[in-house]
Amino acid sequence: MPEPIVIVEDLKVYFYTYAGVVRAVDGVSFEIYEGETFCIVGETGCGKSVTSRALTKLIDPPGRIAGGKVLFKDRSGRYINMLELDEETLREMRGKEIAYIFQDPAAALDPLYTIGYHFIETMRDHGTIRSNKEGIERAIELLREVAMPAPEVRVKNYPHELSGGMKQRAVIGIGLSNMPRLLIADEPTSYLDVSVQAQILELLRQLKEKRGLTLLMITHDMGVVAEMCDRVAVLYAGHLAEIGPVDRIFMNPLHPYTQALLRAVPNPTRRMLKLEPIPGNVPNLASPPPGCRFHPRCPYAMDICKRERPKMIEVEERHRVACWLYAKR
């Protein structure tokens, strides 16, 4: 059994806005094991992106990390609390240990510089290369690894000369350039078309195998979860609803939210006469409902759900849920 590379304990990220304190992530705990693909799935504003950014303290004001721990296993096997590190060390960790790939590849690349320059810049910052020539060679190698067509040409191209899929390949290549151990992909395919999405997902899968990476995927698409992940965490309104192996989550969803979500997603391989929508709307996190945040939309809501927040309970092996339905009474 591999060890966790990241342990998140009771993470809290609050945004202090004019509309009040938005508890975007409010006491979330999970761990990511070495070599697995871990997915955080949830809807807009559930805190999945914020969680992934908080792992290296990439939170801008008015947001603040209000509490919790993020333990990261460094190369010597010790766990260090990321949230206690200074900005200098964190910068060193970002890229070298943990790399990010964001949703919009166009925004991740500076239009004024060539693709090759982007590689050189990141590698020079982390002392991975000694000269620009070495940087270009490494860049071509990396572009070949991410299956970029004609890497020797593309390395000299500017971002606007590349298509959406090629940009995302370049961004992935840049992310890999300092040999990180954890790759965080935040909705890496939601700007891409179906045919290109399939190519990029396939690429991520291959890279993970080849390099022994740990992959953290942030997505809203249950289809991507089913295709990619080993374990899944379902977030709802800043709370962790359910966490477990992907097969169990889909076969035996425990949390009423997960159950409802799976029923609301159309399956392209089946003829469906009626979808079952989840009633109501995602709550406003400046004034979230008390107790379990899903209770206003939950068909099984009980009195206690309105008053107390449920604790995480292990219902079957490695499959935990935060729901009063499963509490021992």
């Binding site: 202090y16 806005t17 004019y18 004001p61």
Partner: peptide
Amino acid sequence: TRRSIEFR
């Protein structure tokens, strides 16, 4: 920008 004003 109003959203990025910190209220503390």
